[in-house]
Amino acid sequence: MNVLRFISQNRGQVLELTLEHLWLVGLSTLFAIAIGIPLGIVIAHRPRLKGPVLASANIIQTIPSLALFGFLLPLPWLGERADRLAILALTLYALLPIIRNTFTGIRGIDAAVLEAGRGMGLTESQLLFQVELPLAVSTILSGVRVAIVISVGLATIAAAIGAGGLGEFIFRGLSMVDNNVILAGAIPAAILALFADAAIGWLERRLQPR
């Protein structure tokens, strides 16, 4: 296997690019969670905002990733460094599944449970933290899982604007017309996606409400 030989000969660089990749995906996912979950909570409680918020997140998703990188390039501070740009773009892409699943998870809760909680005198924040979020958590996590898997793939394109990550091998391999080099980027990326998927799946089962 030439690929494996290539990887082991260049393991220092493979490791470095994998870590860069993790950095891009991890940080953007954290940002997307920090923005997406609160937005999902808000639209679950204010039906009027649901349309505009989901539509915006949807539109972002439909922008081709290279074009999005291009659009963001002129931004001050962000445009200065490719990894900042890539993290912003990946964050934007990850929003939709997280917002949508947070919304769905909360709206899917039995109305009788919420009415009982409210009628018993829970405050809105007690209702949110003790009832709504725990009951929606597995749906929210499957949104995060989808977001991560999409991100790992998209992050390979970030190499096109010089943000690093496993995409470097892929682009280098493309220009060299060398499948082994392409695979040296693609295989670790696939493994990364599988690992993230399994880890979130495990978390999802751990936190599963009865």
């Binding site: 039995d110 009788a112 449970v113 009982a116 725990p134 009951l135 409400p209 009865r210």
Partner: peptide
Amino acid sequence: VIRLRRGIGYVIQEVGLFPH
């Protein structure tokens, strides 16, 4: 309203127990 509700027990037909 919160104190009012805590002083009034409420039982609904669907029961609405917290499943978790």
